[in-house]
Design a protein around this nucleic acid. Structure first.
Lengths: 214, 214
DNA sequence: AAGATCTTGGTACTGAGTCTCACTTTCTGT
DNA sequence: ACAGAAAGTGAGACTCAGTACCAAGATCTT
């Protein structure tokens, strides 16, 4: 049952309260000495967010090796992180409860989250089209992470896996708004110029324009 | 010289190192007891970010009372925060040095920064056009704060006040990308339909179209 | 002036995180 | 299989941030 000590720690904290649990008591509860606990996890806070280390390195290598267009790679990477973090719904819920009841952990979460922002930001400025202003990858990375977090929270509130489909649509919509800098459907900057012979019938004109607007 | 104890604290920390300074020594240095120090500032970290409390409440009341369109209110609010934070260039630089040399303070800064994100997010979802999806204000708020932070860093690196002009342009560009949800120049979704008499000269057509594209 | 309220300083305490040292387990080469 | 190296573990002492409490002084009120 308690395979990973990290998962056991989160369960214990969720049940007994974060502030109420001393580091010594927590270490005891998951079967190791106080010394070993700090050596392994660094701090009482970090034990809660240990998963993110894995997710983050996965994301990083995935973005590094991806040859897809940016709007695809971002969506895929984000969704993979989400899946990893919600793989064990029970544990995810437990951690969510723990966070909800512990302000200091929510603050810590912001710090962790910012690492994703950095990874996305670096990837985006690396793959941005020439002429992209400096602020664009920064803004987009922050927006991507914010949308991802919101989706995660949504999923946590109502255990509905459709939340992930919605997330995917939100991300592509978001990225399209930064066209043409990061590829994507370049709807916004596309210009349709139509020239017809004066004798063309209104119907034909309409059909042709509609086809372009597709 | 050391009018505000808070400014004196930042200076002392910047000169002697954050980790190397104990709370007691810092309290002594700015002329108060350890007890009073914690009572007044809450913690060693918070004394560094005391300015943000003022900036944040100003921003909040400014956004609450503003009757301008969102893209204006956001830009004005952001710029006011920036001005407040850089009012004393000397102090700003000192704090910047302190942050640069202290990882734990940079993490704390992320937490502070997130409060701005919340304020912007709430303002944006309050003023969003009907039908705006939930993720839009979240994404835009994160992007606005990220761009603002980047501008602040830019200004810190090279003490060039033109950085603020650039910031203003970046913000309006950013917000326009979320049209039409938050007002702004609705370039992206504007459609120009031109119909000309068949006898119109090419020049006239061009001029008319150019005028619309403005 | 006398009492009520607020602020300050001092002291003791809790608990996180670090450091060091002794001990045990696991790996490695022969 | 065995000796020695390397890595991991546990125990205790220590530093320091932050809290709780109490006593003394300052400020306000009437």
């Amino acid at each position: 049952m308690s395979t990973a000590p990290q998962a056991a720690a989160v369960r214990y904290l969720a049940e007994h309260g974060y502030e109420q649990t001393t580091a010594g008591a927590l270490a005891d509860a998951i079967g190791m000495s106080r010394s070993t606990f700090f050596r392994r996890f660094g701090s009482k806070e970090d034990v809660v967010f240990a998963d993110h280390d894995l997710a983050l390195s996965r994301l990083q290598s995935q973005l590094l090796s991806s040859d897809r267009p940016a709007y695809d790679a971002i969506a895929i990477g984000t969704l993979e992180v989400t899946h990893l973090l919600t793989r064990d719904p029970n544990a995810a819920r437990l951690r969510s409860d723990l966070l909800r009841s512990t302000p200091s952990l929510r603050e810590r979460e912001l710090v962790i989250t910012h690492r994703y922002e950095r990874v996305f930001g670096e990837y985006l400025s690396r793959t941005a089209a020439p002429g992209t202003p400096d602020w664009a990858p920064i803004a987009l990375a922050a927006a991507v992470v914010a949308v991802h977090n919101a989706a995660l929270r949504r999923w946590l509130r109502q255990n509905d896996s459709r939340a992930f489909g919605a997330l995917e649509r939100e991300l592509t919509d978001l990225m399209a708004r930064f066209s043409p800098w990061f590829g994507g459907e370049d709807r916004a900057s596309r210009v349709v110029v139509a020239a017809f012979d004066a004798s063309t019938s209104p119907d034909e004109v309409l059909r042709a324009v509609a086809a372009q607007l597709g």
